[in-house]
Design a protein around this nucleic acid. Structure first.
Lengths: 192, 192
DNA sequence: GGGAGCATGTAACGGGTTACATGATTGG
DNA sequence: CCAATCATGTAACCCGTTACATGCTCCC
């Protein structure tokens, strides 16, 4: 949140969510909107952000948030300390491939192909965000992050393609096993 | 958990944790040991796994777990339905690059280099796990997943390298700006 | 004898989600 | 006028973590 607000301008929680969905999420998940509001209030109570209601003091009026000096300092401290720890990766597709022995081979291939299609879509989204970021000199670093995301998306496609090839290789082996295996004599390639 | 147990043999919670750390974690995080025990008991209460205590009925004796037919069925159901949703990625390094405007350029480069070093180590771990998996014909699918992880690790290295280059490009630009931009003529070597 | 690894568990907490509730503004 | 989007918030819940507690076994 502080990071999002560290770029110039004031924005609402809603804005923040859209921003996160459009760029942050490609390399570091985007929080739920309800959490954003909760977090903003928490940050305000700590003096890291201030909110200005547009118009009078209605209870649920539009609030625009801005980061404070204390917030900037806290953020800089956070960025300076440690490295943020290891990359978190949860890849449901590979998990299913790992458990491939309980699915039909065709099913796995279909899942991989779906994943490729989804990744292609993501790639175009990233490219959209990237061209936007490149148009503003202020956003040089976000642009680097998005460039990373673009390349990562391309790599993801290649990885999926390679895994598809591996899976087909497996099926061929299984085909051979079915022919040679149980029958007996000619264990040409093999091991025990 | 069920997935881990779906491979032949009985194992303890502790075993499961080691297994997850040595392979699962490369493409889909490894749960905390405390959660493994909790989950195993939950699964047992649902009849998806059975536990056998070695020796007599001591309260905290070693328990070896095995999956039941019901468990296998539940797992197959799980694997068959849906695609498991999107990849979850949290990349603290790229997050920091994204916020590069609040760090010294050298700091960012150092972080990227650390990341490269860590990724190299991970790569050798993956290769170790992979050769193990390749030695057992039963583990053909896990081997595919690990092959994916190996390639992914290599891709991660390339991505980091490319980002490093991007960051250096940025610094050069900033250097030019400092020369040509606001100050005018005599802003040669250094700056604030 | 003592430390490293094996092995199991409890308790407290927190971060984050989904579901729900509400209402203003804008554009077809 | 109606739907979509803007906009803010509450409540319940759950997944998973850290910290703590316990004791065994093996090997140096």
């Amino acid at each position: 949140m502080l990071g999002l607000l560290s770029f110039p301008g004031e924005r609402t929680g809603y804005d923040l969510k859209k921003w996160a969905d459009a760029s942050l999420r490609f390399f570091h998940w985007s929080p739920a909107i309800s959490q954003i509001y909760a977090e903003l209030r928490r940050l305000e109570s700590r003096g890291y952000v201030t909110s200005a209601r547009s118009g009078p003091e209605e209870p649920r009026a539009k609030r625009r948030y801005a980061i404070t000096e204390a917030g900037r300092a806290a953020l800089a401290r956070w960025a300076a300390e440690g490295d943020g720890g290891p990359v978190v990766l949860k890849h449901p597709l590979v998990l299913r491939v790992w458990l491939g022995h309980l699915a039909a081979p065709g099913r796995l291939r279909a899942l991989v192909e779906e994943h490729i299609a989804r990744t292609r879509e993501e790639l175009t989204e990233i490219r959209g965000a990237l061209t936007q970021a490149e148009s503003v000199p202020r956003w040089a670093h976000p642009a680097v992050a998005l460039r990373w995301s673009e390349r990562r998306s391309l790599a993801e496609l290649e990885l999926a393609e390679a895994m598809l090839a591996d899976l087909e290789g497996l099926e061929d082996l299984e085909g051979l096993d079915a022919l040679e295996g149980p029958a007996g004599l000619e264990d040409s390639g093999g091991r025990s």
